[in-house]
Simulated assay, not measured.
Amino acid sequence: MAKNTNDNDLSKKLAKEKEIKQEITRINGFLKEIEPKIKKGVKSLIDNVAYMAVTLRELRDDINQEGVITEYQNGENQFGTKKSPKVEIYNTMVKNYTSSFKTLLDLLPKNKEQIIDDGFEEFVESK
C-alpha cells in the first residue's frame, strides 16, 4: 500500500513539474523583449511566478471542492468554524503572485505601446 501511495505522490509531483515548465515557457513567451542578461538575472523570479501560478490553480480547485469554511474542535465540547487555511494561503500567494508578475512586466521596454495578456484577468475572473 505504501508503494502505491509513493507512486501516486511521485506522479502528482511530476505532473506539477510539467505544469510549472509549461508556465515558465508561457511567461518567457511574453517576456521575450527583455534583454537576455536581465532575463537570466530574474530566472528565479520567473520560476517562482510559474510555481505560484500552478499552485494557485491547485489551491483554487481545492477551495472550490472543500469550501472556504472549515470546522474545528478545541477540546471535548468546543466546536466552531473558521476560514479555511487554504483560503489564507491562497490570499497571501495571490498577492505575492501579482506583485512578482508586475515586477517582471516592469522589465519590459517602455517605448512600445502594447497590451500583454498574461492570463491574470482570466485567472481572477475564473474564481
Rank of each mutant, 00 (worst) to 15 (best):
1 M>H: 13
3 K>Y: 09
3 K>D: 11
3 K>S: 13
4 N>I: 02
4 N>R: 11
5 T>W: 04
7 D>Q: 08
7 D>E: 10
8 N>Q: 11
9 D>L: 05
13 K>N: 07
14 L>E: 02
17 E>I: 11
18 K>S: 08
21 K>E: 13
21 K>C: 08
23 E>L: 04
25 T>A: 14
25 T>G: 05
28 N>Q: 10
30 F>R: 00
32 K>W: 08
36 P>S: 12
39 K>R: 02
43 K>A: 07
44 S>Y: 06
44 S>M: 03
46 I>L: 01
47 D>L: 00
48 N>A: 04
53 A>L: 01
54 V>T: 02
57 R>W: 06
60 R>F: 05
63 I>T: 10
63 I>H: 05
64 N>G: 11
65 Q>L: 09
68 V>Q: 00
71 E>Y: 14
72 Y>G: 06
72 Y>L: 02
78 Q>N: 14
84 S>F: 04
85 P>I: 00
86 K>F: 02
86 K>M: 02
89 I>N: 13
92 T>H: 10
94 V>L: 13
94 V>R: 03
97 Y>L: 10
100 S>Q: 14
101 F>D: 09
104 L>K: 00
104 L>D: 01
106 D>C: 09
106 D>H: 13
108 L>H: 04
109 P>F: 05
110 K>C: 10
112 K>P: 00
114 Q>E: 13
116 I>V: 15
117 D>Y: 11
117 D>G: 07
118 D>P: 08
118 D>H: 09
119 G>V: 12
122 E>L: 06
123 F>K: 03
126 S>F: 01
127 K>Q: 11
127 K>A: 07
